[in-house]
Design a protein around this nucleic acid. Sequence first.
DNA 1: GCCCTGTATGTAAACGATTACATATTTCCC
DNA 2: GGGAAATATGTAATCGTTTACATACAGGGC
Lengths: 348, 348
Amino acid sequence: MVTIKDVAREANMSVATVSRVLNGSGPVSEKTRRLIREVAGQMRYVPHSGARSLITSKTETLGVLLPDLYGEFFSEVIRGMDDTAQRNGFHLLISRAYADRHGIETAIRAMRGRVDGVVVMSPDLDAESLLNIPSTMPVVLLCSVSRGNGIDSLTIQNCRGAREMVGHLVSLGHRRIAIIKGSPRNYDSAERLRGYRIALRDAGIVPDTSLELAGNFTEAGGYAAAIELLAMRVRPTAIFAANDSMAIGALSALRESGVEVPEEMAVAGFDDIPLARYMDPPLSSVHVPICELGARAVEILLEGITQKNGHARKRERVSTKLVIRSSTGRQPAERPPPQTLNREMASV
Amino acid sequence: MVTIKDVAREANMSVATVSRVLNGSGPVSEKTRRLIREVAGQMRYVPHSGARSLITSKTETLGVLLPDLYGEFFSEVIRGMDDTAQRNGFHLLISRAYADRHGIETAIRAMRGRVDGVVVMSPDLDAESLLNIPSTMPVVLLCSVSRGNGIDSLTIQNCRGAREMVGHLVSLGHRRIAIIKGSPRNYDSAERLRGYRIALRDAGIVPDTSLELAGNFTEAGGYAAAIELLAMRVRPTAIFAANDSMAIGALSALRESGVEVPEEMAVAGFDDIPLARYMDPPLSSVHVPICELGARAVEILLEGITQKNGHARKRERVSTKLVIRSSTGRQPAERPPPQTLNREMASV
DNA sequence: GCCCTGTATGTAAACGATTACATATTTCCC
DNA sequence: GGGAAATATGTAATCGTTTACATACAGGGC
């Protein structure tokens, strides 16, 4: 590999001058500039970023720690992150890690010296466990919060979103509204449940804990919960699932039992995954702007990196949007024109 | 930040000894070993990977260059890569880049000194343009090949997959089979078209270029192409779309025109995206093992990195699998049990 | 007691860049 | 023309590691 020394020797200049030309720092005569550019180009010299970051102590790379995510969420959040990172001249070092305390700490250690900061997504973590994240570098928590130490965090407006959706069900006349909860110990899950309860309270509906069913964010979980609901003496008239996967599972169960949706039972989800609009009937959901979530996380992290001095601890939320389709009630059939059915699925 | 020097000073030892303890290299007395371990732990010392890789000239990081992919493909291919990379102690540096010559070269340059090798996915590139990728480090081409220089490549068995699917249509009695082609200048697209033609030739069907419609891998493209097919004097009886998105677009067009699928028109896609089984009717497709694609790409790259000496140039394909559902003909209704409808969509 | 061998440790030179400081050269004003 | 100021270039320290080589000390065979 050709180094800056090789270029210097070839051009009969010192490494300092070569460095100055290549970085546009310091004064260099026009003649030398041209010469060195020429030689460097000829020799196909490419600066060694590792060496550079050792001395500048900037890697221009951001670490991203993600749990084992599937599908759309993963790709969209990374898209948002990468866009923002690239626009600021940063790279992304991505690592999937077990979302437990040890996994995260190990992963962060492994990143020391390779990144300038990390976005950590650990939805299944207790706020407790995050207290001691080694704060040797800027960290932004995604979809969870940490109390105590001043770690920035960015979350979804889970509570508000859930509240709006349940409020919508109420406005349609529903009084017995069940919820299929998400994974226990999950931040998003807890917040969505909270929103559900607030909405009921707002409507003056007395809470009925038998309508709060356990779930785990999977279709199978939604299916099982729906079966359970159908077996109740007095069935609810609406189901709010804490995410779309469970709502889809519930829809399967209802269809198999011959229950009409939304006539006999309204169903709503959360996330607005692409599949939602393809369900039969199309699923009402709470839209989460995933791409923006990633983008904003990186923005916050970059702020933390550049203004490392006075940087007030941040806690932000990205806002959600209600998407009402037919699974919650009579709606003008949303029949998307094919041009916008879904974004291009590249190549394969 | 605490460095190895700090640890050495604190433990009253030389940096060399500290390094030996931490890396388990060279002989160290049991007493010193314990002492240094203790001190390092106490001081929360974490080695600086950047500095280490400067001297060892190993970064233990792999670059991944991807075009602007959406959804499942993106996440699955990265999952496969990350699994394999982690199992071998490597990290992933991911970058989305314009898939043109300049974009790729720039991105690869930017990675010099940060990675030990790169996986480049550039389906829309001419083989031509890839000839001059700076071979300063090991490269594996994903979903495209380069002739001439010895760059490893891993592709999908596009041709065989297409041939099998079209063969299946033939076996159902179809003789007028249309194809909606993928993006022009795309490798996968070209190979799938080739498979289609071979299958027709195998069946002794005279080719009819009016049945080869332009497409671009989008739903809108599939929709438009289907409209065109419906307007033909003699309609085909089956449509093979070069990917599922276009097949889905075509299904919309057919439904709007009141054409029965599969009775009046059979439809098949390629890729087997998760949506495929949710279509009405469920879409027959050619399954692509995306995760394995990523995993194998990393394996090949790692081989290229470790055995940099005698390393025969590799050209591999991952094999596809025919998935027949009802869009191509009477099938026992595939009604997946809810447990396996779809993989868990984590959290959000 | 001497030499040899082996074990334990230290010293210092890399790796490939950036940059403060020093030095050489030019410009230009009076 | 002399010196200050500005411009152009070079020297060498530095970042945080690893590692070849040197050194010190112990034990063992004679």
